[in-house]
Design a protein around this nucleic acid. Sequence first.
DNA 1: TTGTAAGCGTTATCAT
DNA 2: ATGATAACGCTTACAA
Lengths: 332, 332
Amino acid sequence: MDNETITIYDVAREAGVSMATVSRVVNGNQNVKEATRRKVLDVIERLDYRPNAVARGLASKKTTTVGVVIPDISNSYFASLARGIDDIATMYKYNIVIANSDGDDDKEINVVNTLLAKQVDGLVFLAHDLSDKIRAEFSRTRTPIVLAGTVDHENQIPTVNIDYALAAKDATLELAKNSQKIALVSGPMINAINGKERLSGYQEALRESNQTFSEGLVFETKYSYNDGLKLAERVRASGATAAVVTDDEVAVGLLNGLVGLGVDVPNDFAIISANNSVITEFTRPALSSIEQPLYDLGAVSMRLLTKMMNKETIDEKRVILPHGFVKRGSSK
Amino acid sequence: MDNETITIYDVAREAGVSMATVSRVVNGNQNVKEATRRKVLDVIERLDYRPNAVARGLASKKTTTVGVVIPDISNSYFASLARGIDDIATMYKYNIVIANSDGDDDKEINVVNTLLAKQVDGLVFLAHDLSDKIRAEFSRTRTPIVLAGTVDHENQIPTVNIDYALAAKDATLELAKNSQKIALVSGPMINAINGKERLSGYQEALRESNQTFSEGLVFETKYSYNDGLKLAERVRASGATAAVVTDDEVAVGLLNGLVGLGVDVPNDFAIISANNSVITEFTRPALSSIEQPLYDLGAVSMRLLTKMMNKETIDEKRVILPHGFVKRGSSK
DNA sequence: TTGTAAGCGTTATCAT
DNA sequence: ATGATAACGCTTACAA
């Protein structure tokens, strides 16, 4: 008695046409007489018919859904990217299915496979680095994939990034104007591609400003406020008088930690953060920061993906978006 | 030549069994001889066969996907909820398709419909309030729906919330210990259900502490840092000496705005925020805050949804999670 | 402009 | 324990 699934067939019968015709009007095909269209539309309205996207997906081999693999949606950095992705996806009539990976290799492989099983039309992949295992998974499929905010050192997969090395270099150079001992505070993956890039930019800046590189000035930490806070003591003990920090939350923690220790920021210690997310404005002094177009990184990667799904020819598979620098109170 | 879609049929032929048998082993059906299972599994491995979830969904009428309608995934409040939702979803083998609504009625209706068209097995709906239009959409479908962090004043739809009125009352009472003029800074929807609840809690607290309610002490604003910042002047001009703020970002803005105006927080002005998200620790002084179990709100609502999708009987359709209070430097 | 019918890749119901 | 075969609800040639 609860058997009320209205199908295209019901509409066809009720409107006195074939299901092909109904399909045509539903899909906006022009080859339908205006009178018939009206009639069909009427019945659709009356029966409250809604096309079943699953059946449609099976028949057309298109799901109008893309997968988004993301380390942690509750991290504001990734959340901003995700918003950019969804807005463009929506614009092109796609939905996104989001899967958190925690940056864990096995989880990544897992979710990529279930997403592919669900026949997503494309995949946007965000991670801290690209493991060989996940690369192997990628090579098994013909589903279009683009990396957003994630460097591929093998240059195999289309990516949308900023120039992380240059950004780190710029920030370091900025600090070198006033400081002789500049620390680099990086995420847990200094050996990851993304971290490597930043490290090399940092080192290059040191060379150009005739400062010597020292392992003791490089700090690795997890991406959280508390980790930054805890790090303050060690950083001060290192004798550094400035730091480039690759994560905003960590930078806030470091700043608050140092200030809590009685350090005068920016006079005794200068800080430049990396993402210019809104939280850089929350602190006192506010954080100077490299400016990353987070939303755009997501938006552009999704746009790129639409082109790939559409089999358009891609002129440039490695998009580099410009970054900037915003000077606030934490540096001189 | 690129015609390499491996189907269950290919596996069947290759293994010398029927597709029914292949389907059985893929689905872990016990009625398969161990030898046959092995043989089939072998072929699956060799052919690198992956079941097509879309076809499966059409045949079984289950997609193992749930829709999540969310105002803005880049807002840390909602992002935390989303993470809770996804973790539990994953635990129960569901994927989530997320759609941003910007809290806009029309967009909400839109995405709900496309989600339903995609045959999601269930829906988690987050919003600032529940419009009649969206309620009408909900009543048209038999797909299970639960509201997370969203009050339904008609008590029709299962919800998972905290007691917003009580939380606002608690915070106001806390401030009333030291202040005689307490402002309420609310989101754009003071007339929305959620806002109404908070307003009533605020008013109740005023009555209990013998303070008079004044329209001039209620401020509405959008949910952003800059809106809070801009509000500082007006709030100070109102003569208020304390404020309950219903959004963390706005609270940070208000705090920084007041401090920038030379106001001594907490001595001349006390602030209590609402969500205890991590940003409450970023400011100086740090923000006292109502403590909401954001992640749990998401997790519990998803758990509730799994029960509904599973047609289990639900004992309590209106779950209220406990809230707390964290005292920091912004209040005395 | 419209209709017919063959898929799409599974699950599920009967038989056997 | 296994196999045929009919759905599932739609798209898409191909005809007419």
